[in-house]
Amino acid sequence: MNRRSLPALVCASACAFAFLLPLNANAADSALALLQAGVRAPLTTSYTAQVERIHFGARGSRQTLVRIEHLAPNATRRTYLAPEAFYGNTIVQRGNRRYECDRHHHRFVIRVEHDPDDLSTAQNFALLARNYRAEYGQDEMIAGYPVISLSLINRHTGEKTMSIWLERNTHLILSKVVFHRDGAVASEMRFEKLRYTNKLPANTFSTSAPSGYIVVTNNVANRSQSAGSGETDTNKPPTPIDPHFLPEGFALIQTTYPTLQGVPFLHLLYSDGIRSLSIFENQHNTPAGVNGFHAQSVKIGERDAQLVADGANNLLTWQGAHSSFTLVGDLSKPELLKIANSLR
């Protein structure tokens, strides 16, 4: 599928307006409606918990242990307990503003992020529903609460892409496992020490920098413009080259012109609702630098390219005839190579 499928996606998204409405009793029984309820649960449920995340990479794993205090609908504080390098660091998220307190560098970073609107969230849920079916699994207990398990199966390939466990009453997602195409586990998230409460100390979501910290403002939202913004930029990257091949179910969901380390790029984001692919293109000689990564040399046509595995994501970068390209996504290496070759 390519960008020409966007109108179809927009039409499908109209159906997804149900996502914005309260779930009705009939739909609540279906696995897909349950999944919707899980996605929406943090909007109405306040809690504290400890959350463990593991990302399994090609050469090893990354683990974090974070204490979360969440006040519905959109105030969240995360305090890092592990690894040691991040211990004590905190992130307070209030809407699209994020306040990162880095205790090791005495740095307080304020980030203004993209504000995902309800419509784009609904569109992307419609995309997920079109490409995946949800199947019930066995009921279990997680963090002392009964959970319902769901497996998300790719409708085109029949492969299980994700398993999630939702708390039976609140529908909060308490555990999630993401799989590679070959069935290997790519990442895992699990709640522990869960407690439902909306009585959190007043200073929990404080957004003021500690005394002596350097405040840095990092405006992510301002560093990129959406394709439809109409802004002119003489340094704007070239007209996008559509890939002739994309995995089944993938559609273009976002076009932006971000600036990475001062260099303007065209960024196309494709997804099937769960898996995703970014294509970065620019006219300068700027393929990604792979210093610090274990890169594999491959060929795109006659051109040298570098392939890097980073957790669940693979990255492929090369210098084309007129542009440089960098592809990033939780796709297999053969899939990335096939997409890259279809860009020529």
């Binding site: 992020e113 992307n124 990092n218």
Partner: peptide, 29 residues
Amino acid sequence: QISAAAFLDRHTEAMVTMPLAEHLSAPTF
């Protein structure tokens, strides 16, 4: 060259609208 890490981070940031993605792009640290 721009570090591969910058592309990986940008990709993660762009995923915030996906329903089941981590609803938090990687913090700077």
